[in-house]
C-alpha cells in the first residue's frame, strides 16, 4: 500500500514538472525574440533556447510514462470511506427513503414473478415470427425470404384468393410503394383492411362498410373491435414462413367464416347474444362460431 502511494506521488510529481515545462515552452514561443538575446545572433540564440526547452519536455514525458507504467490499477471499486456521505442529505427524516425502498422492492419482486410465468407460457407456444435455421450448413445459403417477393407474385396470389369466394371481393391499393393494402368486403357484413409485407399479413382492421378505409382508426362498434382482436390472434396462428401462400389462404378461409357473424348462434350455448355480443370467435380449425366467453 505504501509503495503504491509513493509511486502515485512520484507519478503526480512527474506530471506536474511536465506541465510547468510545457508552460515554459509556450511562454517563450509567444514572447518571441527578447531583449536579453542580445544584438547579434538573436535568431540562433532563440532557436537554441527553444530546442533546450523542448528536450526537457521530452525527458519529462518519458519520466511520466515510466511512472505511470509502474502504477497498478486499483482492484475493484474504490472505498470512498467517509467521503461518500458528502453527497447525501444529512437528515434522514426529510427523505421518504424507507417507503420508497419498500415499494421498489415489492415492484421488482412482482416483475420477477410475472416475467418468470410469462416466459414459461410463451416458451410453450412457438409463435415466434423470426425464422431461424438451426443447421450449420444452410447458413451460407440465402434463406427464401417472404418479404422480398416481386409485386406481380403478390398480385397473382391476391387475385387467386379473390376468385376463391364469390361473396368476398377484394380491392387493392398501394400507398406504400410495393406493399399492398387490400380491402376485403365480406358480403354486406363487414369489411377488413389488411396490410401486407411481402407475402405476410402484417396488420388487420375490421370495420363496418360505412366506416372509413383508414387502417389506423378502429371501428366504432364493439363487435367489430372484438373481431379485430380475434383476427390478430388468427394472423399469428396462420403464419407459415415456409408456405406463405397457404398461410394467407387459410387466413382468408377463416375470415370468410365471419359471413354468418350476425345470423348463426353460438355452438356451445345456442344463443345469439352473450353480454350483448354475437359469437365473435371462429374456431381456428373447425370454423364454428363461439362466443368470446364460450370458446
Amino acid at each position: 500500500m505504501e509503495r503504491d502511494v509513493e509511486q502515485l506521488h512520484a507519478a503526480l510529481n512527474a506530471v506536474k514538472i511536465l506541465r510547468s515545462n510545457v508552460g515554459y515552452v509556450f511562454e517563450s514561443v509567444s514572447n518571441g525574440l527578447r531583449a536579453d538575446h542580445g544584438e547579434d545572433g538573436k535568431d540562433a540564440k532563440f532557436v537554441t533556447e527553444l530546442q533546450v526547452l523542448l528536450t526537457t519536455v521530452n525527458n519529462n514525458l518519458r519520466d511520466v510514462e515510466n511512472a505511470v507504467s509502474n502504477l497498478t490499477s486499483p482492484p475493484g471499486a474504490f472505498n470512498l470511506g467517509n467521503t461518500t456521505y458528502l453527497s447525501q442529505e444529512t437528515t434522514q427524516e426529510r427523505q421518504a427513503l424507507y417507503g420508497q425502498l419498500v415499494n421498489s422492492y415489492k415492484w421488482t419482486d412482482k416483475i420477477r414473478e410475472y416475467s418468470a410465468v410469462a416466459g414459461h407460457i410463451l416458451q410453450t407456444n412457438s409463435i415466434s415470427k423470426t425464422y431461424k435455421t438451426f443447421s450449420m450448413t444452410k447458413r451460407r445459403k440465402t434463406q427464401t425470404s417472404i418479404h422480398n417477393v416481386p409485386p406481380d407474385v403478390i398480385e397473382n396470389h391476391i387475385s387467386a384468393i379473390d376468385r376463391l369466394f364469390t361473396d368476398m371481393t377484394i380491392t387493392t391499393s398501394r400507398p406504400f410503394v410495393l406493399n399492398p393494402i387490400i380491402q376485403v368486403s365480406l358480403g354486406r357484413v363487414l369489411k377488413a383492411i389488411i396490410a401486407f409485407k411481402g407475402l405476410m399479413i402484417e396488420w388487420v382492421v375490421i370495420k363496418a362498410h360505412a366506416e372509413s378505409n383508414d387502417i389506423w382508426t378502429e371501428s366504432r362498434y364493439r363487435v367489430f373491435q372484438k373481431v379485430t382482436e380475434n383476427s390478430h390472434a388468427a394472423m399469428c396462428h396462420f403464419y407459415a414462413p415456409t408456405m406463405p401462400e397457404l398461410g394467407v389462404r387459410s387466413f382468408m378461409h377463416w375470415l370468410h367464416s365471419y359471413i354468418t357473424l350476425f345470423s348463426s348462434p353460438c355452438k356451445k350455448c345456442a344463443n345469439h347474444l352473450h353480454s350483448n355480443l354475437p359469437p365473435t370467435w371462429r374456431d381456428l380449425r373447425t370454423l364454428e362460431p363461439y362466443h368470446e366467453e364460450c370458446k
Binding site: 354486406r188 350476425f262 345470423s263 345469439h272
Partner: peptide
C-alpha cells in the same frame, strides 16, 4: 336498433333474442 348490421335478414334472430331478454 342494432347499429353494426344493415341487412334485416342477417340479424332478425339476434334482435329478437335481445328483445325477449
Amino acid at each position: 336498433e342494432y347499429r353494426p348490421c344493415i341487412v334485416p335478414a342477417m340479424c332478425w334472430d339476434l334482435i329478437r333474442e335481445f328483445l325477449q331478454g
